[in-house]
Design a protein around this nucleic acid. Structure first.
Lengths: 334, 334
DNA sequence: CATGGAGTTGTAAGCACTTACAATACACAT
DNA sequence: ATGTGTATTGTAAGTGCTTACAACTCCATG
C-alpha cells in the first residue's frame, strides 16, 4: 500500500497525491477530495521513512531529561509530549539517568536520529562551572533549535523558558521575614542554574531586610527525605537555632517536617517549612507543606509554542521567564 | 555526508560500506577497519530514513501510557526507555492522558509511525468489561509484537508481564489477619485487570481464614489523598468499625494516614495501613506507610527482554508473572 | 596449468516519498 | 479563432540506504 496504489485508484499522478498529503494549495478542490476519499477507503498512511527521506524532517523532537521518574521531570515530559503531539510532532525520549553520565553521547545519539529540535528538560544539563562543557550544545544549536526547560544558555539557536526562581525565593523569604522569622535555614540540593537563582533570591531578601546572610544557615544536602531529616537533627544537636526552613525541593521539606515531628515542634508556630515544586509529596505530610508552584505546565506549553514559532521562522526571545506561585498550605502562616 | 562520501574516501563500493554498517560478516577485516576509520574521521552517521526505507524497521518501539506523571508509570517509562536503549532501540512515547480518551486513535497514530513493537504500560489499556473494545489491540498484534506491562490479554502476538497482585494482596491480608486484625477495610481506585486481581487476593485471604467477606468493607474511591481521607471519615462517622486499611494505591494509604491523624488513632496499634506500589509518597508520611513493592524495574526489564526474544524469533510465554515484595515500614507490625 | 570453490566486492534495482520543471487545460480578452 | 496568463497536473530526478545477484580474486587441488 503506497502512493502509487492511491494514485492509480484516484486516476491521478503520484505527484498530485503527494500534494494532497502535504496540503499543497495547487490542487483543485475536486481532485483533492477525490484523492482524500481514496486514501480513506484504502486506509492509507504515508510511510514515514520515505517521507523523511524526501522532506528531511521527521516531525519529531528529541526530549532529553536526567530521570523521568523524578516527579518534576515526569510532569514535564507529560506536558511536553502532549503539546508537541497537539502540534503534529512526535517526541523521542532519552533519559540519561540522574548521574548524567555520558549526557553528551546521549545528546549526539538523539541528534543522529535526525530530530527536528532538541528539548533539554531540567536545569542540570547546563554546566555553570565549566562553560566549555556546554559547547556541544551551543554547536548543535547552529544546526537545529535547542530548547531549554528551566535552564539558560545564552547562544544563538538556544531558547530558554525558565521559572523565575530568584523572585519566588525572594518572595518566600521576604514574607517569612515580614511575619517575624529571623533565623531562616536554607537547604538546597544542587549546584545548577536554577539552584543558584533560588539561593540568590534567599540572600537578596535577607539583605533587603537588613538581615545578615549567615553561611552556617545555608546547607547543601542529598535530594532525599532521610538525608534532610538527619541534616536538620545534627544541625539542631550542634546548637544551631532556626525558626524556618526553606528548601530547594519538596523532598527536603518532607525531611524537615519529619525533623519537626521528631522534636515535637509545632508547625508553623515553632518552625515554618517551605518546599519547592509543590509536588504530590508536599500534600502527603501532616501538616501539608507550603510550597512553590513552579508552573511546569505553563513552562512546557511556552517551550513548545516558542519552538513552533522558531520552526515558522518567527522571532523568538532567547529567554522567557514565567512567574512562580507560592502555595500556602499548613506549614507556614505568611 | 552520505554513504557515497564514505565509499569514495575508503575506495570501496557503497555496498561494502553498507555491509560494514550492518555487521555483515562477508567483509574482510582489512576492509572493515579501513571503512570504520573513514566513518570515524568523517563523523558519519547513517540517515535513519533511508535506512528505514531499506530495512523497513525503525529500531523504535512505541510506548503508550495513560499519564507519565503518575509516579508508577513515570518509573515504568524510565526503565523501559533505559532497557530499550541498551538493546539498541529508541522509544517514542505517547501519553493518552488519564482519561484514556481516544486511546485507540493514539494507538493507531503510533502504529502509523512504523514502530517495530508496541508497549502498553499500565493495566488500564485492557478493557475487562467489554472484550470487543480490545479488538484493535488484538488485530495490531497480528502485525507486530504488543507487550503489556501489568496487563493481560490472551491473544497471539501479545505478551504480558504482570506483577502477582493477587498473591501480594493475599499475603498482606493473610498477615494482617494472622496478627489479629479482623475488620480489614479494602479501598481501591480502578476497575482494571490488576485492580480485580488485588481485590481477589484480599477476598481469598479472608475466605481462607474463615472470615466473611463483607461488601461494606470494600469501597471504591477516587485516586487522590483527600478523597480517601474523606471517605474514611464518612465511613467512620456512619459507625463502620475497622482496624486495618488495605489500599490499591499509596495515595489512598496517605489519605488513610491523614484520617488516622484526624482521629488521633495510633498506627499501627489502633489502625494498620497498607499502601501499594511503595512509591515516594509512602515515605513522606509520619509514620511511613508499609507498602507493596511491585517490582516495576524487574517488570520493565523482563518486558524488554521478552521483546528482544520475540524479535529474535524465540519462543516467549504469553504471560510472565513476577512476585511482589511487601515492605514493612511503620504503619503495620506484621 | 586449468578448475573449482570460497571469500570478497561491485552493480544496479528497489524502497516510498518530494518537488523542480515541463506540459497541459482552461478562462478570458482580443 | 487566437493569444495570454493562470491554475492544475504529470514526468522524472532525486533522497540515502539495503541487498540480490553478478563478478572478481585468490588459492588449493587435480
Amino acid at each position: 500500500m503506497n502512493i502509487y496504489d492511491v494514485s492509480a485508484k484516484a486516476g491521478v499522478s503520484i505527484a498530485t497525491v503527494s500534494r494532497v498529503l502535504n496540503g499543497n494549495p495547487n490542487v483543485s478542490d475536486k481532485t483533492r477530495s477525490r484523492v482524500m476519499e481514496v486514501m480513506n477507503a484504502l486506509g492509507y498512511t504515508p510511510n514515514v521513512f520515505a517521507r523523511g527521506l524526501g522532506l528531511n524532517t521527521m516531525k519529531t523532537v528529541g526530549i532529553m531529561c536526567s530521570d523521568s521518574s523524578d516527579p518534576y521531570l515526569a510532569h514535564a515530559i507529560y506536558y511536553l509530549e502532549r503539546e508537541l503531539r497537539a502540534n503534529g510532532y512526535d517526541s523521542i525520549l532519552c533519559c540519561t539517568g540522574s548521574k548524567l553520565i555520558n549526557k553528551r553521547q546521549y545528546f549526539e545519539l538523539l541528534l543522529s536520529k535526525r530530530v527536528d529540535a532538541m528539548i533539554l528538560a531540567g536545569s542540570k544539563f547546563v554546566e555553570i562551572d565549566s562553560a566549555e562543557d556546554n559547547n556541544y550544545i551551543i554547536e548543535a544549536a547552529a544546526d537545529l533549535p535547542v530548547m531549554l526547560v528551566n535552564g539558560f544558555l545564552d547562544a544563538p539557536g538556544i531558547y530558554s523558558t525558565v521559572c523565575d526562581d530568584r523572585d519566588a525565593m525572594y518572595q518566600v523569604a521576604d514574607r517569612l521575614i515580614k511575619s517575624g522569622r529571623r533565623r531562616i535555614l536554607y537547604v538546597y540540593t544542587s549546584h545548577s542554574y536554577s539552584g543558584e537563582n533560588k539561593k540568590r533570591g534567599y540572600r537578596d531578601a535577607l539583605a533587603a531586610n537588613g538581615i545578615p546572610v549567615r553561611d552556617d544557615l545555608i546547607c547543601q544536602c542529598g535530594k532525599n527525605i532521610a538525608a534532610a531529616k538527619e541534616l536538620l537533627i545534627s544541625l539542631a544537636d550542634s546548637g544551631l537555632d532556626f525558626d524556618a526552613v526553606m528548601t530547594s525541593d519538596d523532598s527536603l521539606a518532607v525531611g524537615a517536617v519529619k525533623f519537626a515531628h521528631a522534636r515535637a515542634l509545632d508547625m508553623p508556630k515553632d518552625l515554618a517549612v517551605v518546599g519547592y515544586n509543590n509536588s504530590m509529596m508536599s500534600y502527603c505530610t501532616d501538616p501539608e507543606i507550603s510550597s512553590v508552584d513552579t508552573k511546569i505546565e505553563a513552562l512546557c506549553i511556552t517551550t513548545v509554542q516558542s519552538l513552533m514559532q522558531v520552526f515558522g521562522g518567527g522571532d523568538v526571545p532567547r529567554k522567557t521567564t514565567i512567574a512562580a506561585d507560592f502555595v500556602q498550605k499548613q506549614t507556614t502562616d505568611i
